[in-house]
Design a protein around this nucleic acid. Sequence first.
DNA 1: GCCAACGTTGGC
DNA 2: GCCAACGTTGGC
Length: 151
Amino acid sequence: MAYWLMKTEPDVFSLDDLKNQPGKKEGWDGVRNYQARNNLKSMQVGDQVFFYHSNAKPTGIVGIASVVRTAYPDLSAFDPKSPYFDPKSKRESPQWVMVDVRYESTFSRIITLDELKKIPALADWALVQKGNRLSVLPVTPQQWKTVMGLL
DNA sequence: GCCAACGTTGGC
DNA sequence: GCCAACGTTGGC
């Protein structure tokens, strides 16, 4: 089982939104970055995911989701009316993928980016490094454990 | 709202 | 293949 972190803007889709979905699950579509896509493709059912709120007050990890379906073609790329439409992605050879995630838990408090930046054991993590914009990134077991220890 | 960092596009 | 221009992300 592997660990990941996924970013989302809570104004668009928050952890509470996931919790309120039927079955508490939702397809994670709209990823349009190759590195993030490759991470999606590596996900296995049962993988644990830190749910991160960006462009929020404050920004940080708010809880946990899990992967319930491995990567499959991102249908929003085929839909001209979707904000995620990508004419370069063809049904015969989909460029983008999505996974399904399910709500697991909400932390008793937000672990803020500010706090994470102060932890020496997390200094190598892409999340806390300047200019990092990757929306789906791997978390090592050690990093996962460190973050959970902050609660 | 601003702007730095980054990824992508497209002219050459 | 280089790189300037552009668009987007995301912290502040």
